[in-house]
Simulated assay, not measured.
Amino acid sequence: MKALAIDTSLTRITICAKNDDNTAYLTLDIGMRQSEKLLPSIEYVLSQVDLKTSDLDYTVLCKGPGSFTGLRLSFSALKAIELSHGTPLYGVGTLEAYSYAYSSLPFPVICAVDAKKNRFYVRINKGTENIIEDGDYEIDAIAEKIAGLESSEFFVCGSDAELFIERIKKDIPSFNKKLFCLKGKPNETENLFAIAEDMIAKKIPALKDFEGPVYIRASEAEEHLTSKASS
């Protein structure tokens, strides 16, 4: 199949295009310059596998949780392709995309992304079973949930796996479960292709026009308005 995958849910942009068996990747960790680089980067990556946007069978993105600005960027770019060419757009939860490659492990998998303010976006799976739903949790609450699970060993993945393990060990000295992770930051966009094509095979619908990013936590502006209204 011919497809384009984008992950802008965190601080970096990752774009992957595939033309059947040929793939091209580009990752940009460039902070506030994401908006000016996204569209030319999409064109560049597509050109590396001899594709144009009109050739695509589908597009897929990480739909959140993640950066408000980053998620809006990828939704805007891929919805524009959808409107121009009728290309189906699929959305995959960020934590699902990051943990997909480890679903065959024999012990629970924790996917962790730093949500700042002493919190993490987390989900816990064992195989295809979702043990803890995607959520925005304080580190103490996550440790308590893990402590209540039967398994003594947990594999941790996600963009902030090492930080997650470090924080639990530092903040909760009594924590006695074994947590381990891989070093480095894998490229998750190829996981998006696999998940999207499974959705296509199962006839799961593409995103509707009205469907947008998943924001587990309210934005600071929304928090400010809520606080102002209640005072």
Rank of each mutant, 00 (worst) to 15 (best):
Y58C: 05
S104Q: 13
L4W: 01
E82I: 09
F107D: 11
A161Q: 03
P65A: 05
A17N: 01
L179S: 00
D7G: 08
S104D: 11
L225E: 10
I142C: 05
K63D: 12
E166D: 12
I204C: 07
K169Y: 06
C62V: 14
G66V: 08
L95A: 03
F155K: 14
D114Q: 08
L56D: 02
L51G: 02
N176H: 14
T14E: 05
Y98S: 14
S67Y: 01
I146L: 08
H224L: 09
N125I: 07
L163A: 05
E197P: 00
N176L: 06
E82Q: 13
V92D: 04
A141T: 09
G148P: 15
V113L: 08
R217S: 07
T128F: 14
I42N: 06
R167A: 11
S104A: 09
G93I: 04
R33W: 11
K18R: 11
D114A: 09
F68H: 03
F193R: 00
D160L: 07
E133C: 03
S174H: 13
K63L: 07
I165R: 04
K208W: 06
F193N: 02
N191D: 09
F68S: 04
K169G: 06
A101Y: 05
L182D: 13
D55M: 02
K2P: 05
F154N: 03
A194F: 07
N118K: 12
T128R: 05
K37T: 11
A17G: 08
E223W: 04
G184T: 01
D55I: 03
A221D: 01
D136I: 08
K79D: 06
A115C: 11
V156Y: 12
R167Q: 10
P173H: 02
S54T: 13
N187K: 11
E223A: 10
V92G: 07
K208H: 10
P213F: 12
S159E: 12
D209F: 14
K37C: 10
A218L: 15
I142L: 04
L78Y: 04
K18D: 01
K116T: 06
K177I: 02
N19M: 00
T189V: 04
S74I: 05
G184N: 03
S152L: 13
T87P: 02
T69Q: 07
S231K: 15
A221P: 00
R217F: 00
I42Y: 11
S103F: 08
S67Q: 09
L71A: 05
E138H: 12
A206Y: 09
A24F: 05
T69I: 13
Y100F: 07
K185W: 13
F210L: 13
D57M: 02
K203S: 10
K52I: 08
A101M: 04
E36Y: 05
D114F: 10
A5I: 00
L95H: 02
L163M: 12
V109N: 03
I15M: 01
D160Q: 13
R33V: 12
K185V: 15
G93S: 11
L83M: 11
Y25V: 05
L39T: 06
L163P: 07
I110C: 07
